[in-house]
């Protein structure tokens, strides 16, 4: 059974349909990259996957013993979290909250898990540093460690490299691939940095207010939608560089 299934789902904002015809499934070990331009419905779909927004038709459901609250989520950074006085450890530990239920305090085991994930992302030296004083790449690592505290199976990453320089982006992509290959964590990533993002992906979901393409990366590169999008993105990249 698939970890996550989307059956003919459609989402709307204020009664206005913004993405429809979503049919895909994510299996354990997959690395799904969701691509599309701004306003194509990517963020809405993320909210749908996280159960923060209900579909107007169709359904989105988790299987394979995955509960929706066990999705490790790496959100886009908000203005509040950027100047927040908190240590890296406090931030990472807060990822254990979903396993606490109504219990008020973290257990010793929770703290161990937080420390394990801090080591996994090689930020032990930043453990007691103030989150707001870290570089963008270091902040993303801390948030990724927090996301890992919330899940053992599925990570959902929303534009993980936005605001990072190319070196830090590549490093982050490397970490994500490692988590996917070595720790067998399923990845769903949203990105508009198409080349960087699809490099390691196994599956692609292309949105433009509806589902343009879903399938493996190889099929996508040879598909009509894929060719067009990759060429356009290539031109955009060229434009940025020169």
């Amino acid at each position: 059974m698939a970890l996550l299934t989307c059956e003919n789902a459609a989402f709307a904002y204020d009664g206005k349909l913004c993405v429809e015809g979503l049919n895909f499934e994510v299996n354990a070990g997959d690395y799904l990259c969701i691509v599309g331009e701004n306003g194509s419905g990517k963020s809405t779909l993320i909210k749908g996957i996280l159960n923060l927004k209900q579909p107007v038709s169709g359904r989105v459901y988790a299987g394979d013993n995955l509960h929706v609250t066990e999705i490790g989520y790496l959100p886009q950074q908000t203005a509040v979290s950027k100047d927040f006085p908190a240590s890296v450890f406090e931030v990472v530990l807060s990822g254990r909250l979903n396993s606490r239920g109504l219990l008020p305090f973290y257990s010793k085991r929770d703290k161990e898990i937080a420390n394990e994930n801090i080591s996994k992302l090689k930020i032990e030296n930043l453990r007691n540093e103030c989150y707001r004083e870290l570089s963008g790449g270091q902040q993303q690592r801390a948030l990724l460690a927090r996301a890992l505290c919330a899940t053992k199976k599925l990570l959902l990453l929303d534009e993980p490299t936005s605001g990072l320089d190319p070196a830090a982006s590549n490093e982050l992509y490397g970490i994500i691939r490692q988590l996917n290959r070595e720790n067998k964590i399923t990845i769903i990533m949203v990105s508009h940095d198409i080349h960087g993002a699809i490099g390691f992906a196994s599956h692609i979901l292309h949105l433009r207010s509806r589902q343009l393409f879903y399938g493996t990366k190889e099929d996508y590169i040879n598909s009509e939608a894929g060719k067009k999008f990759l060429r356009r993105a290539g031109e955009d990249d060229g434009f940025l560089v020169f």
Binding site: L52, I71, P75, A86, S94, L97, N98, P104, R146
Partner: peptide, 23 residues
């Protein structure tokens, strides 16, 4: 406040994440 300290931290730091992980 003491009982909900950890939840208040999570909700203050990142409400979307807290909601996404089921708080």
């Amino acid at each position: 406040f003491v009982v909900f300290y950890n939840k208040i931290f999570a909700v203050t730091f990142d409400e979307t994440f807290a909601a996404a992980t089921g708080s």
